[in-house]
Write a protein that binds this DNA or RNA. Structure first.
Lengths: 196, 196
DNA sequence: ACCTGAACACCGTTCAAGT
DNA sequence: ACCTGAACACCGTTCAAGT
């Protein structure tokens, strides 16, 4: 409780949380093992006792962020509404961690991410999409979001921080994109042969 | 013409071309100033006489790649068909340079990229989209492609190279995505109020 | 069990110097 | 005009050693 108690006992959780805070403030690029160690007031090599290496650290960061996420579930609102709010929440959540979205893709060997991928394809099947189309549909929606987050994190880095105008524009783009995704999927649900 | 004439006079063009070849083979991550210098049989510092720094090198690489690109123009086939082939060509072109797509986004201060952005929005206006919607429509289409390329380059890096199955899957995803983009835009063209 | 110090093999880049 | 060598400030990481 004293002032100098800032130097808490290190743990994987604290390492990951500090890394996420740094990402929120300065982007993932600012999270070097050395800078992270300095933020924790410790030697760089101390981190390796708690995480295997930087790749594992990033994986833990991703899992921590997706763990806090709401799942995509079909309710009485209909799939369009559920998908809309889910994509919007996902975007608002992930854009707080610039650069991290690059390490979140659908299929790969990310335990948590894979399970959420499966629950998403189940969502689309419940909504009436054939299994194969359900898979491609979620891939399409998520790939768009991924692209949007990637574009934004690159623009953030390059562009000057001109107050909130960038944020407004970003919101315009992403709301357009989400509605477009839904419109496309509505068509495909009506006639799955529209698509290969 | 002799055997040892491989060591040509250095020039910005040769530097950029060699960097692009390295990207085709090993991805953009493999293009370090030091590795590029070694490929050109020269000291790392020699490169700085021809390009200002690595950022400029990447910009030159991007410009070189987009320069070889066909433009998006409206012809008698109709906008859907033109957009489909253009997106497909773009994807097939850019996927040859893993990692480079991350540095190609719509709006920023990339001379060539900006002009192609404007020609694309003109394309959509010619097709009947209101100006603001034309802009958002191309942003949507390009953002999806960008996301697709980003996902693929990350998967390539992580996943094991299991023959051609990955390529077939990628093609399924991207053809689905392109058709979905077109379906969405068809809806929006009919009724632009569907979207904010 | 937990952390440090020194070291290695990498980066991009600057600066003075060579021809 | 074109290139080199040495150096600087960074990376991630290994390995032996300390408590």
């Amino acid at each position: 409780m004293a002032d100098d108690s800032e130097r808490l006992a290190l743990s994987p959780e604290i390492v990951v949380e500090t890394a996420l805070h740094m990402t929120q403030d300065q982007g993932l690029d600012s999270v070097t093992m050395r800078a992270l160690a300095k933020a924790l007031d410790v030697t760089p090599m101390a981190l390796y006792y708690h995480v295997a290496n930087k790749d594992e650290l990033v994986v833990l960061m991703v899992e921590k962020v997706v763990a806090d996420r709401t799942e995509l579930v079909l309710d009485e609102r209909g799939w369009q509404s559920a998908l809309r709010t889910h994509m919007m929440e996902l975007w608002e959540n992930l854009r707080q961690y610039p650069g991290l979205a690059l390490f979140m893709f659908g299929l790969p060997t990310l335990g948590a991410s894979t399970s959420s991928y499966e629950s998403a394809t189940k969502f689309f099947q419940d909504a009436g999409f054939p299994p194969r189309v359900a898979h491609l549909a979620w891939s399409f929606a998520w790939t768009y979001l991924h692209g949007r987050l990637s574009v934004e994190s690159h623009l953030d880095r390059a562009a000057s921080r001109k107050s909130g105008t960038g944020a407004i524009r970003a919101r315009d783009h992403v709301t357009f994109g989400i509605e477009a995704v839904i419109l496309a999927l509505e068509q495909i649900l009506q006639d799955p042969t529209l698509v290969p």
